[in-house]
Structure formats: C-alpha cells, structure tokens
C-alpha cells in the first residue's frame, strides 16, 4: 500500500512538470492513407480527437450529439473533428457502414491495434481531446448528455 502511495506521489510530481502532447504516430484513414496525428493540429489549427468504437454506446451517443451541431459550430469556429476508431478486426469493417449510416461528417482514422489509445493512457473510451499545435489543451473521458456544449465552449476559448 505504501508503495502505491509513493507511486502516486511520483506521478503527480511528474504530471505537474510535464506537458501533454500527442504522440508521434501515423494512423490510417478508411482508404488506407496514412495521416500523421501530429499534423492535424499544426499551424494553430484546432482539432478535436475523439476515441470511439462501433460497440461503445456512450461513444456513439457523444458523436451523434456533436453531429447535430457540427456544421453550425464549424461556421462559428474553424476546427475539425477526428473520430479515431479503436475498433479491432472484430468490428472494424462496421466502421464505414456506421459512419455513413449515421451521416457523420467527421474525419475518420483507425487505431486498429490501439497504439494511440495505449500511448494516451486511455483505459476506457470515449476519450475526447482538444488539441492545438499538438498540445492537449482539454481532455474528457466518458459521456454524459450536454458534455458536447462544454466541449464547444472550450473550443471557442481557443479561437
């Protein structure tokens, strides 16, 4: 138990001094093109990164909720949402059908063997990040109704 407390103390002391950035990874699009995750928020671009899966009910609720306002919000602030599917081979073939079937206009990236999820330390999804110049400026895990408005308020602050 004491060991545990020591570890937690160490983590807190590191976390104060460290700055959260996105790891240097390439993810594939649905058509197999590679996208560097570090390029999506370079040059002051604002990117929302949402880790989701076709089998994750709260993830889909969140993406459904945002999609209601996505066009409207993008007219107000210039940002892009990257919905990173953590589906593995069991469900990955469902991603395209679901994204289109739901009429989502997001950029879809695939994290098939959960490299990004692992390096972000996300034990659970949904995980939603706002990233600017590769720095993670907002992080939220889990979904409850209305969290999408909090997300947009944060995006507006970065404008």
């Amino acid at each position: 138990m004491n060991k545990l407390i020591t570890i937690i103390t160490i983590i807190f002391s590191i976390s104060v001094s460290s700055q959260s950035v996105l790891p240097d990874l390439n993810l594939n699009t649905l058509n197999g093109e590679e996208v560097s995750i570090r390029s999506i928020s370079s040059d002051d671009k604002i990117a929302v990164v949402s880790l989701w899966a076709t089998w994750c009910v709260p993830c889909i609720k969140e993406l459904d909720a945002i999609s209601e306002y996505y066009e409207e919000w993008k007219e107000e602030v210039d940002f892009e949402l990257y919905a990173v599917s953590t589906d593995d081979s069991r469900t990955i073939k469902r991603v395209n059908a679901m994204v289109n079937g739901k009429g989502w206009e997001y950029n879809i990236l695939l994290d098939t063997n959960n490299e990004l999820q692992r390096s972000l330390g996300a034990s659970t999804i949904p995980l939603t990040l706002i990233v600017k110049n590769n720095k993670i400026v907002y992080r939220h895990s889990g979904y409850s109704a209305g969290v999408e408005f909090e997300l947009f308020d944060k995006i507006k602050e970065l404008k």
């Binding site: 073939k93 059908a97 994204v99 289109n100 079937g101």
Partner: peptide
C-alpha cells in the same frame, strides 16, 4: 470475407 456498401445516411456491411 467482408462486403460493404455505404452512402450518406445508409450503411450495410456483411461478414
């Protein structure tokens, strides 16, 4: 074998 068809508003996938 996976087959898929999708357009905006409709998606079908079969394995």
């Amino acid at each position: 074998l996976d087959l898929g068809y999708s357009k905006k508003g409709l998606g079908i996938s079969s394995t």
